[in-house]
Design a protein around this nucleic acid. Structure first.
Lengths: 228, 228
DNA sequence: TAGATTGTTAATCGATTAACAATC
DNA sequence: TAGATTGTTAATCGATTAACAATC
């Protein structure tokens, strides 16, 4: 079964966002040589409601056995398939500053199926410089090359690690080249055609911490109400 | 107006998660000396539906003027208040490994209203070591001290940057001391009483990238359907 | 006043979850 | 078979959004 199989169509956003959570628990269980897991088990592991677990997993196709549970190994494979972790992705990175360089050196990229095929920057000082990418060496290209490279290098995903001010320009170049998806690390809203998948990754701790207080307050409210 | 004002009760989760997004755009606008913004403007900036913007902002209290729009400065203040960015938070950090140390050195912590008041570890090799925190120096304490310190040092939030295996133990210690909230950076599900706010922060790029493929597929599906 | 824009209603859509028949 | 657990239904809950009266 490949990830391009039509079985995975129309999986709700909310479900997709939980699949990585299940995957992490399943990998833990797998390491402890657990071979079967019930929705109740997985619910306890992940803090997700058991009915929700079953409903989520049902979108992957039927992989549980009534009265028994789910096979941990099968589920891992199934989720990895669904999330596209079993195929290779060819990516370009535009913006070779601190963040761009961090991604280049990030081991998770090669361990996962992400192959860095090209690096871009608009700074003439940087263009032409060689950068070590795993065992290979890539030369930083001018952002002008993006458009032609998408097809020539068969890039699937364009990564943007530029300052906000030029992120849209870079996105336009990826789109002009016919990219499938864009992964935006710049803290700005990009506009791309509807058929190009756009995902924003926010690494700033601030944004993840903001809302803490309000969240806490809601939790307190609930506790107070429950006590009434 | 303080953040402990009852006006902020019962703001929907979905709204809270968008407040930081509005805040970022508003700060941009403020820097460009823009003083008023309409819900339509803000919608365009943030990629959020204009009706949703108005509904979200209405939870903060009434700060818009019909026919005119919203005052950028007032809105910034209001959102910062609501998110608890206008008050000081006293935090402890348990687990002084790479991530813990990164947080200690993270400038955003002092720029924001987060004051690091204590550091904890269970490794006898680390306990007693002095660590520079801004202009101060803190000594790493044994995790045994957490319980007493929460009250003694008036800690609001307990940060957990330990390995998963000991995260629950550390959380229990914070809870025993009477902590208000826990910020968990360990990739594990923690169990805490309902009246303790628990927030999980996931910094791993992997998890943020997972789901890219499925998301893209959904986008393609929508485009195909729209074309029908 | 006329134009603009808010604040809110109400319809709609999607997500959650208890419950239980199906079935291993 | 008896016990366990799935897969799915249906009721409920919360979030989204077009529309428009209120009003600056």
């Amino acid at each position: 079964m490949t990830a391009s199989n039509s079985e995975y169509r129309h999986i709700p956003e909310a479900t997709v966002s939980r699949l990585p959570v299940y995957l992490r628990s399943l990998l833990d269980l797998s390491e402890q040589d657990v071979t079967t897991v019930s929705s109740e088990n997985l619910a306890a592991e992940t803090g997700v409601n058991a009915a929700k677990v079953r409903k989520d997993l049902s979108y992957l196709g039927t992989y549980g056995t009534r009265g028994v549970g789910y096979g941990v190994g099968e589920l891992v494979d199934q989720i990895r398939d669904c999330l596209g972790l079993n195929r290779n992705w060819r990516v370009g990175i535009a913006g070779i500053g601190n963040l761009g360089r961090a991604l280049v050196n990030y081991k998770g990229f090669s361990e996962r199926k992400l192959t860095i095929c090209a690096l871009y920057d608009s700074d003439p000082e940087k263009v032409g410089r060689p950068i070590k990418v795993g065992d290979d060496v890539l030369t930083i290209q001018d952002v002008e090359s993006i458009r032609g490279d998408v097809g020539a290098l068969d890039l699937d995903i364009g990564i943007i690690t530029t300052p906000s001010s030029v992120a849209q320009d870079v996105a336009d170049r990826y789109v002009a080249g016919g990219i499938q998806g864009i992964l935006n690390f710049a803290p700005t809203v990009l506009r791309v055609p509807e058929d190009v998948m756009l995902r924003k990754v926010d690494l700033s701790i601030e944004l993840q911490i903001l809302g803490f207080y309000v969240g806490r307050r809601d939790a307190l409210d609930r506790a107070v109400e429950a006590a009434d």
